[in-house]
Design a protein around this nucleic acid. Sequence first.
RNA 1: GGCGCAUUCGUCUAGGGGUUAGGACGCCGCCCUCUCAAGGCGGUAACACGGGUUCAAAUCCCGUAUGCGCUACCA
Length: 507
Amino acid sequence: MFFALEEIMTRHTSTCQNRGVEETETNEIRARFAPSPTGHLHVGVARTAILNWLFVRHHKGKFILRVEDTDQARSSRESEMKIIEDLRQLGTDWDEGPDIGGQFGPYRQTERLDMYREVAETLLKKGAAYRCFLSQEEVDSRREQALASGESTILRSPYRDALEEVWQEKLAAGEVPTIRLKVPDYLEEVVFNDLIKGEIRFKAETIPEFVMLRANQTPSYNFAVSVDDALMKISHVIRGDDHLTNTPKQILVYRAMGVESPLFAHIPMILGADRSKLSKRHGSVSVGQFMEEGYLPQALVNFLSLLSWSSESKEEILSMDRLIDEIDLDRISSSAAIFDRSKLGWMNGQYIRGMDEEDFIRSALPFLKKAGRPADDSEITRKILLSIQSKIETLQQIDHHVSVFYDDDTTPDSDADAIAQTEESQRIYRAFVEEAGKVDLLDLKGFRSVMKNVQKKSGVKGKHLWMPIRVGLTGKTQGPDLPIIIETLGKEHCIKRVRRFIQQEIS
RNA sequence: GGCGCAUUCGUCUAGGGGUUAGGACGCCGCCCUCUCAAGGCGGUAACACGGGUUCAAAUCCCGUAUGCGCUACCA
């Protein structure tokens, strides 16, 4: 499970030098998703995962899941499990990962610590990195000074070109250095061609000589990422554009290792309604939360993939297969997108309405149960659910729309009450109670004949007859079709509900 | 402060030298209808600003403004 480092690096180096020849062999598309297990799966991060996954499946490559857990304080195994669960829920799968292993494992950074140390050591020997004995405090104060005097805040450590005696002495004295990357003296700029943003250039003096290995011997993010991507033979790095300025640092690590850089694609960020970074302040942000609120995985995936990407067909409701088929880095725009909840709602509604009966019932039942209603899959329950399928945007809204079937004593809306109080309505209600009392069974047929008689007695017809009845039966001016309500309520409940609106006659 | 990225209807976006600047969400109206939805039809609304280049600029170039990101021994 653990390759000799030199061997891996030589292999990489040689493939990159003999490109033409080895091309076919090393041409495999390999992309990765590398979350840090410090919480739930944020939709912005999920979007990155989805894009990577779609891209890989489109190109018939390999998708790698790697856990970046070097931040010991914030990482947890629970979080890792939750993230994996959410990824599965969204429909993504991976070919290599911490849970299933793979050729280039291990896939947790904390299990790769030896590799980072080895690479750091190698880079030290090659002169591509150096030991820095600056303390955290010294680094901070240098930065403050630079800021105050208006100079560049890019740190150039005094130990960068220190003589061997100097650092040997420090080492002997028991001081533990960090290992910093050396930006080569001859380097003028780092240029790369981002697959989405185009050509990006950084002047060498603006690239910090960042810490690769901390004093506690753990790798920093930029270092670990580069080492892992190189060793795992990642061909395409697709990630948020907040990493754009990290890229030159990482490119320098690849060069120091003598490894060819992967291709980069920096996708635009997802923002909240106020154009700031999408966070809890903007409402739900984790995939888990959206699932709990009754959003469908496929709708979320579809919606997320349409943020900054568009199908050439201009269609918007796209199945997983179509997304895989049509995904194209060239069609990803380069500006940030705002997370529009109302459009997500609409799209989720589209998916809900598009479900066949069985699918819908199966997905709806748990939410009915969660709402404390009898979730028994009986014929009547199915009818109730189906009657509101076109009214909801999320499964969670089932409870709200379904209450009319279960609650006899809801307090009427004010506009409903106003309708119930009219003299005409009162006439209708009295006639209804009287007529309904006469029939044995208030099923659909019974209801129709009762209403015919009510119409005759009250002299009211059309919507002036039906709306008061709706209000009398439900306490609301809107809701599911009346027939299904009658059918599920039955005679007793119908009479009971209407009766409570009848005022005592004063005379 | 430095560096980097971005800027087309309120939002997601198409279009990338010649278009009545297209679609979707939202919103408004109409139709359907016992109601609300759904569905159908229609309407509202945009090229940040200033300079160039060009016969012609939303589109190419340069500036400005604004927003965002990075600037840690966080990721």
